[in-house]
């Protein structure tokens, strides 16, 4: 847990001049591009703390400036090692940017660092009321498909459509609500970091975020499913 909630501490030294680099992209002494220290996460890559509220404009500026500095074109005449480092760092830069600029992917990534988003054996439980809702909506979707396939009457079809449209509005409202909740917990997380809360408090917040993300993924699937179905009906 603690490894995931503190920015990767790095005690790397430059391979060229042996100066301490502190995990920087370039050696502060000789300016050579540096290998990625092990455990560099996307936040650390941008020199950011593991906070969930980000200034997107600033992030984009950093991204542009780094992609220019790390670009393989600048290393065309450098050693093979440096060319490889430039490729590695550029590719990680793109992944890091893509992940951090999206608020949901950002939370998922943070939880992933703490080992909380594993698939498979590790259970990701959804609340029972939500499962009921999801199940019922799936049944309505099925009913609509079957009625359409068997050439149901116009009246039956429009009845089903109306039912689905109601469901769609409900799920879209739920999605907006869950996004708001995620934003709220994200703010709480940042506050916990600011006040150097203990690991137990951070873990509790992470569990909360995990639960919100699970609910969100169900609801998003439902919204997409209903949208698709209504587009075809």
């Amino acid at each position: 847990m603690s490894a995931a909630t503190t920015t990767a501490a790095t005690s790397a030294n430059c391979g060229n001049c042996s100066a301490a680099t502190g995990g920087a992209h370039f050696c502060p002494a000789c300016g050579k591009i540096q290998p990625l220290p092990r455990g560099t996460d996307y936040f650390a890559f941008f020199g950011l703390p593991q906070k969930l509220t980000l200034d997107l404009e600033q992030l984009e500026q950093k991204f542009h400036s780094l992609s220019w500095k790390l670009h393989p074109d600048h290393f065309a005449r450098a050693s093979e090692d440096e060319r490889q480092l430039s490729l590695d760092r550029s590719s990680q830069l793109n992944d890091a940017y893509r992940t951090l600029r999206d608020p949901v992917a950002r939370v998922e990534y943070l939880l992933g660092l703490a080992g909380m988003r594993k698939e498979g054996q590790k259970k990701q439980q959804a609340p029972p009321e939500l499962l009921e809702e999801v199940f019922e909506l799936n049944e309505s979707l099925d009913e609509l498909r079957e009625t359409r396939a068997s050439g149901g009457t116009a009246a039956t079809m429009s009845g089903l459509r109306a039912k689905l449209e109601t469901a769609q509005h409900k799920f879209e409202a739920s999605l907006a609500a869950v996004d708001l909740e995620l934003a709220r917990v994200s703010t709480e997380w940042d506050a916990a970091l600011d006040s150097s809360a203990d690991d137990a408090a951070k873990k509790k917040l992470m569990e909360k975020m995990n639960e919100v993300l699970n609910r969100r993924s169900y609801i998003r699937n439902m919204v997409n499913g209903v949208r698709q179905e209504l587009a075809g009906a």
């Binding site: 990701q124 993300l213 699937n221």
Partner: peptide, 13 residues
């Protein structure tokens, strides 16, 4: 028994 896997949105009864 009603269970679900949020990662893929599956729901099973």
């Amino acid at each position: 028994g009603l269970v679900g896997a949020p990662e893929c949105g599956d729901v099973m009864r």
